[in-house]
Design a protein around this nucleic acid. Structure first.
Lengths: 197, 197
DNA sequence: CTTGACAGTGAACAAACGTTCACCTATAAT
DNA sequence: ATTATAGGTGAACGTTTGTTCACTGTCAAG
């Protein structure tokens, strides 16, 4: 019983530190943690920091300053839909991830585009979706690419047939395209994102 | 000509600061920036910091410490696929965003599940995709939910008919489900994510 | 040529930093 | 009851922090 109250207090303190980090973009100093949580000595803060370090909430760098641990990685992958939910204890063991890290390899060369057409519907890319495009990747046959054909930009599967290239839609309403001139590829689609609501 | 060299140098310095932030999880101090870039006086660093502040790369908080600006937000939304690409100057004006911020509202109550079934294919959710689920949202009619029916977990559209509830698939292979017992909803699907390669 | 702007050096300084130490209180276990 | 542990107070201390000041050199504009 007392152990549970203790754990909840520790968790609520971790959430306060996490909230500071989300709000300000940096970790709090020991003094700031003390003010936030009503601790008057930096030694008490230091001990709390050690406990949060053990929970992987945060880390200390070589100068003793705090850097974010799991709080920089906002979500957990819990398994499959059909497998259902792990227990709270099992859930605590799941690694936290960041979607930015998961979906973006080369930050300098990656951008988002909104999808307005329906030519890739059978590939699960619907109007209103967003595609993540990496300019630095070399397109391989089978990749989904953003390309300029006859002065118009489009998104399709790229297929290589010998020396030539075809752009293939994923919707029977549209026909494959055989570019007359040299194909200009802006980038490779590396991910799709859809937000509801 | 000289202006372009200057701008490239500033950009490369911005990327060095960004790289430090990505690698360590915190912003560098003035001293660290000086060591990184070969500047020997903190005043020179201070002036560079002001220039980077003007570029929205970083900000200074009220204590003078650096916090990330656009470097915490790794991608830009550039427009629609069909509209094509803006000029580099126009691209610089586009806001940077974070996918974590875009897709996750309530960090404490959000998690990822992998999709293995095909019951929501016509909704553009394919096997291998990941869905983002928010435990804290109250499901409304029309929402996609993760629910437990007859001891098995599933993902479907939730429809309310008066007092009762139906779970509707987005694939003609499957039939709507009318739960016999009280429906247990684990959360509302707020986003879908698919990664290629 | 002169002047001003820009980018940088070097040093001083007050404030803030985390670490360490001595200590206290409450609680649980023996 | 005694002892050990956990969580906290308060102060001292060496190090690091960003700010401010005085100054230098280069380049571009008039």
């Amino acid at each position: 019983m007392k152990n549970e109250i203790q754990r909840d207090r520790l968790k609520s303190r971790a959430e306060a530190v996490s909230g500071f980090y989300q709000k300000t973009g940096r970790m709090p100093s020991f003094s700031e943690i003390g003010e936030m949580l009503g601790l008057r000595s930096k030694n008490a803060v230091s001990k709390l920091v050690s406990r949060l370090e053990g929970m992987n909430v945060l880390e200390k760098d070589k100068t003793g300053r705090l850097i974010p641990g799991s709080i920089a990685y906002p979500v957990r992958i819990l398994g499959t839909v059909e497998a259902g939910f792990p227990s709270p204890a099992e859930e605590e063991l799941a690694d936290n991830i960041s979607l930015d890290d998961l979906l973006i390899q080369n930050r300098q060369a990656t951008f988002l585009l909104k999808v307005s057409g329906d030519s890739m519907l059978d590939a699960g890319i619907m109007p209103g979706d967003m595609v993540i495009v990496d300019r630095s990747q070399t397109p391989k046959s089978g990749d989904i690419v953003i390309a300029e054909v006859d002065g118009a930009w489009t998104m399709k599967y790229l297929r290589r047939r010998g020396e030539s290239v075809i752009l293939i839609p994923a919707n029977p309403k549209y026909k494959p395209i055989r570019p007359k001139n040299e194909l200009k590829v802006a980038g490779v689609v590396t991910a799709v994102v859809r937000k509801y609501g």
